[in-house]
Design a protein around this nucleic acid. Structure first.
Lengths: 253, 253
DNA sequence: TAGTGGTCTAGACCACACA
DNA sequence: GTGTGGTCTAGACCACTAC
């Protein structure tokens, strides 16, 4: 026995037939993972196809069941595979349904575009949220902020934000005249859940003026509610000029 | 030794002291996972905090290292934890930057809302894509489809789609008069990558007429390019009525 | 009822990063 | 060196479920 990698026996023959002189420097699990992913993503194993049983893969790769089990568990976590007891493991139906949407901090986004970020605080009020307002902040004391994000000196987005002072008391002392509230919150508040709503709306007269647009011009509205342990931390509505801002999501299963 | 769950020793006493008559029906790994997640999501362990070493968790839960290793690997896959050799494992910085955006099939989306789905094929042409067109289909033969999605009989979205006949030759024979191309493709074509672009635009005269809107009305534009192994499979632009359609993304780190 | 995945163990050797 | 995570093993018992 010449333990190639593992603790004792099994040798784990990295590749039963290393036809082209591959010393297989890659961990065996990763090689199995790459093999299975390749079969699935190339379409060789279409959705619904039953992948080999764990004991078959064990024999095929000459490894322990734990090894293939961990690999398949990873594929399940990645949404590529579904498992059913007694029946086997199957290639999952691809779900274009979900995509990873990058919603960067606006300052970071603008910097990434190579433009100069500008920020202006429009108003800052401390008040009690009313029942009719969108987030679940009824009756709570909130900080009500309005601000403008600029790229290369031109208005890009108008932001209206409520911060719960019950959830984030430190916000009362923060200097939002210099720091955008989004950036400040990202650094100061842990959160457990967020909901985004993306829609297209025509700018109101007031909004159009702030953004330098004509009334009714198409804008992208991004609303976000953030919770921590069931309590609403903040609600924000960002209104982007439709002519200069897109959201892009790149997704690989 | 009374092997409660594990193979041989360790006993793994599901709950060393079942003071309240809890038989701990939950697998130990899931309990550890829930404990660690709770600490992270509640903010008790803020971003950057070092979580206990594997050998510490082993001792704390009285289990094998493989068990805690698998748990932490899962947290890494979920983006909650980062690991550095020799240094330890750390709570990852939360990234609001990315959210899981559900982009369902339009028929499924409408059905989920409790409305009746309707579909109308507007045009179907077979032609050669020109160089100036958005996707990377220059010079390829494509199927050029235009169709309308309706909810409760009212127009909801206008769809323009190109399907590469090189990548999907079967599409030439598909009956898109009855089946929306998106649903057909989901069932027939594996894919490896997709890119979405979401923007707000004012409807053109032609688009406004198809959707029953006034010219210039704000619409949500969803563009999607889908690849398989580097080749563009399909490009689609769906134009939703801004007044009746939102995209919602719910996200937990 | 038989066979699948679900979970767990008590070790082991290795690579790597830091002191 | 020293200690961390990275990976792997050769078993084991259990729960569920399709047949």
């Amino acid at each position: 026995m010449r333990p190639t990698r593992g603790g004792d026996g099994a040798s784990g023959a990295p590749s039963a037939d290393s036809s082209t002189s591959l010393p297989a420097p890659q961990p065996l699990g990763q090689r199995i993972r790459a093999d299975l992913e390749g079969k699935i993503l190339s379409g060789a194993w279409p959705p619904g196809h039953r992948i080999p049983f764990e004991h078959e893969l064990m024999a095929q790769y000459g490894c322990a069941r734990m090894t293939v089990n961990k690999v398949i568990a990873g594929l399940v976590a990645a949404g590529l595979v579904e498992r059913r007891r007694r029946a086997g493991s199957f290639v999952a139906q691809p779900r274009i349904h979900s995509a990873v949407l990058r919603i960067p901090d606006i300052p970071a986004e603008i910097a990434a575009r190579g433009e100069t970020y500008g920020y202006r605080l429009i108003s800052r009020k401390r008040r009690t949220a009313e029942a009719a307002e969108p987030p679940g902040l009824d009756g709570q004391e909130v900080l009500d902020l309005s601000c403008l994000h600029l790229a290369n000196g031109r208005p890009l987005a108008l932001e209206a934000r409520l911060i719960s002072l019950a959830a984030v008391p430190e916000a009362a002392d923060a200097d939002f005249a210099a720091t955008p509230p989004g950036s400040w919150l990202l650094r100061h508040v842990p959160w457990t859940e967020a909901e985004h709503r993306i829609s297209a709306v025509g700018a109101s007269a007031r909004e159009a003026e702030a953004l330098g647009l004509a009334k009714g011009a198409a804008c992208l509205s991004l609303e976000r509610r953030t919770w921590r342990a069931g309590d609403t931390v903040t609600y924000v509505r960002q209104l982007f000029r439709g002519d200069v801002y897109d959201l892009v999501a790149r997704f690989a299963p």
